[in-house]
Design a protein around this nucleic acid. Structure first.
Lengths: 233, 233
DNA sequence: ATCAAAAGGTGAAATAATACATCTTTTTAA
DNA sequence: TTAAAAAGATGTATTATTTCACCTTTTGAT
């Protein structure tokens, strides 16, 4: 973690997590959460939650982009999902295990604050509508990853890369033009193929006029045709 | 569904769902669930929940083996997960959507009973420990599928097929010797490869003495070596 | 019992993907 | 500022995978 002092970087007043929470719980209840929460900043590349570590808190991500990373027994990485703020992370473990199944890493500079699992659980147990809202928040993070997996599982690399480009454009950067937060290696870990295959395929799409690649800058020239490649597999 | 009459095939007294439920809720509460529940039998191959259909109830599966199936825009099938009783299914939608994201099909004869979502939700909202237990039940069904996906996403076909054989042996049939409930085509839909590739690979494993294949009968001769193939990718 | 359809199986050709060697460009740290 | 390291890029050889044509066996309906 970047910061060990309990420094305040941003104001809690305009926090989305506070706004949502206070629709369900009393201000005094929320104050109990806030009192124990710590504001944190992460630089691009930093690990926010470490696979295998004990999960001691949630993190409400108020700014930034993250990846969920799974490291296998051979040290090979796989990116399960990419998400942007706002998101409540660490929730893989709410109903589950006490250790993180995956790592969460910043792929752009991030800001957020820790939320004590014990206190949140206690409050949520006394307020089921709030509990449902929190569960929804947590599962949001996984919803998108299911369809990434489906793409991975039965499409070839062309289709998978088209899917990822469309996903990033529509769900993360909200634009046809964006500066990729991932290295080619990470892109490959998301697409489930080799780094070279990613480079070759992006080049091919570029040469065919589907996209324009200039280092990390990517422009989707023809999203409809990408959609067709995605559909065709 | 096989049966439209409210026929009773089995006794509710020894039902695991009842036993678990009654650890958390009153008998009278459970009786409300039971009164609305219908016992059902499904033959191998029958659809239990249909992708895209409105999800009107949960099913407590007390006997049998099922697959979660996703059919894509081109009509291609993908098996996301295979599970055996006891399981609470239909829960994909508890926090989510009102339509089934996947189909659930019997791959062995099944027995179970419907559980009204409305009543269960109402009871669970009044009893958070019970709610947590039900959520745990529901997420159980998905836990295993995550690791199947990880296998799919970054292993080659040898490793994926080794993984599936080990998974079936350890999680479904609980034995090194079993009669496969899947056709070769379905196996391929689970492994994310072609039917021929499944056949070739099983034959290769057979010839190398790793397994013994005789039609649907499979014996894992050397699970340790399969594990190595799984690990190597 | 018979026929048709579905599932299982095989080998070879075509295609896709990876691994490798090598080079260039960009980043990072001293 | 510079050197080292990391990331990006490319073409080719090797390996993996799919597709296809074809055949056999099993299953299910009449």
């Amino acid at each position: 973690m970047t910061q060990i002092n309990h420094q305040r970087y941003f104001d809690c007043e305009d926090c989305l997590f506070k706004t949502i929470s206070c629709q369900y719980i009393q201000k005094e209840e929320f104050e109990k959460l806030r009192a124990k929460s710590v504001q944190l900043r992460y630089k691009k590349g930093e690990v926010i939650l470490k696979q295998g570590a004990k999960s001691t808190h949630f993190l409400f991500l108020r700014k930034g982009i993250i990846k969920f990373n799974y490291e296998d027994e051979n040290g090979k990485n796989l990116i399960l999902s990419i998400n942007k703020a706002p998101a409540l992370i660490g929730g893989a473990n709410l109903v589950n295990a006490e250790f993180n199944l995956f790592s969460v890493c910043a792929i752009e500079d991030c800001e957020g604050c820790t939320i004590d699992v014990g206190i949140l659980t206690r409050i949520a147990l006394g307020n089921t509508l709030y509990l449902f809202k929190m569960l929804q928040f947590i599962t949001d993070v996984f919803r998108s990853s299911i369809f990434n997996f489906i793409s991975l599982a039965h499409k070839q690399v062309n289709g998978r890369i088209a899917d990822i480009l469309l996903f990033l454009s529509q769900n993360i950067y909200m634009s046809n033009e964006f500066v990729l937060s991932l290295s080619r290696q990470e892109f490959a870990e998301f697409a489930g193929c080799s780094k070279e295959n990613v480079i070759h395929t992006l080049r091919k799409f570029h040469n065919e006029g589907l996209i324009k690649v200039e280092g990390k800058k990517i422009l989707l020239n023809d999203p409809e045709r990408l959609q067709k490649i995605s559909k065709h597999g």
